[in-house]
Amino acid sequence: MSRFSEEMKIIPRPAQIAAILAALLVPFAVLVFVIFVRLNPSHRGLGWIPFAAIAGLSAMLVVSVYILLVGYIVGDARRRGMRPLLWALLAIFIPNAIGIILYFILRDPLLQHCTKCGAAAQASFTFCAVCGEALSKTCPGCRGTVQPGWSHCARCGASLPAA
């Protein structure tokens, strides 16, 4: 399964339904607006059709993608232990979709789960806050997290045993 389809699954069902509704309703609203508001009754030829089609499709794409992105932010913030409502509001109200870009830059790493008790923990945690189980390999000297392949601790310089 591709990364894109995996990421799409994060979007909550209500957001998906809202995006589909927007895809159906927005072109219709644009069409109504073009015909009844913008067109001068004395110049109603067929020239308005391409304009209405392009405007309707563009509006449909922008609105649907916007809704899907806000939905994605809600789902993704939830699984990362961030605040979904706050980030959804920022994504909606910061102009020019800058809130969405900001979310992707500032989002936290994915949560990890304790192998002993299953509690959620931030990626930076070395030990489980619920049961005390080690969540990653630790330095025997300073108890800080060490990564695979390190021969020495990056914090205290202690020599690490080979895996």
């Binding site: 922008v62 102009p95 020019n96 979709a97 800058i98 969405i100 870009i101 992707f104």
Partner: peptide
């Protein structure tokens, strides 16, 4: 997202 931001604005 940068492209989308321009299109949306």
């Amino acid at each position: 997202l940068a492209v989308f931001s321009w299109v949306a604005s």
